[in-house]
Design a protein around this nucleic acid. Structure first.
Lengths: 148, 148
DNA sequence: TCATAAACCTATTGACACGGTAGGTAAATA
DNA sequence: TATTTACCTACCGTGTCAATAGGTTTATGA
């Protein structure tokens, strides 16, 4: 189960991406209000996001939080892993890794491994920008009309 | 995270499939010993499995547990769901379903839905028999050699 | 009929995670 | 120097996980 931490973190990222949070510092108060999430609780979350190199924080008047990369340079997987730890389906595959004495004869381990890979790929291939509201595309100066 | 309940249940199923547990009752003691899992804890698990129509239990001497279908008629997903409840990635998709007031404007819901479908398919397409030790195939009486 | 072997039932436990709340400190700005 | 903001520490109620403990019922077979 993805917990509120992961889900809220994602919403913070999206909020920043959609509110110029790539260029200017956005106060947490604003994010909390837009997202209807307790600001106090969000403090905990964004703190982890700063530690995890997803955001930069700036204290004082005019401060707030800002993306430290361009939105297209984030993928969902890394955001979730910062908040939830490794996205591992079973304890056999996380932690000390190979502490299970049955690992060599385990009938289910291959399935868990396959599952883990699938999940990892799913979230790492999903970009933050895939979650943004589809914006009316500003046509680039030289738009080639697609063939069909 | 798949908990021990789900993982142990799967191992019980495999154990039965590999120890004639489709035809005769196998005492829990034997399963617990082979699987090196506390019998006491397994009691809780198999109880749920009986309730969930995965196993049949028989009390008294000569009793034990038995698969109620043929091994090839189980898939992993249903076994896990009996033990873990619905395999839902986020609370937004389980429970009362549409209690979230933001569901219509939520940017992340489509991703969670897509993810849930992927997970569901993965486990429901996986058959119990896919987890069994590959057995030296008893050649059927009329084995057609594959072309290539 | 009676010991035995098995499932079945109820209760409890310690540890930990989840989802917060509360209140204060430090830093930057105007 | 007041204000706005991030940042820090502590706490808390609830629930789940992974068991353990001890007893009761049911069926067999000698």
């Amino acid at each position: 189960m993805i917990t509120t931490k992961g889900r809220y973190a994602l919403r913070v990222m999206i909020d920043l991406a959609e509110n110029n949070g790539h260029e200017v510092f956005v106060p947490l108060k604003d994010i909390a209000e837009r997202q209807e999430i307790s600001k106090k609780y969000l403090e905990i979350i964004v703190k982890d996001m700063v530690t995890g190199n997803l955001l930069i924080g700036a204290s004082g008047k005019g401060g707030g939080y800002k993306l430290c990369r361009k939105p297209e340079e984030y993928n969902v997987g890394e955001i979730l892993e910062v908040m939830e730890g490794k996205l591992s389906s079973v304890s056999c595959l996380s932690g000390d890794f190979n502490d299970c004495p049955r690992r060599n004869s385990c009938h289910t381990l291959p399935m868990w491994t396959e599952y883990d890979n699938m999940v990892h790929n799913f979230f790492y291939e999903k970009k933050l920008t895939d979650l943004l509201k589809p914006v009316a595309k500003t046509p680039s100066r030289k738009t080639k009309k697609a063939k069909a």
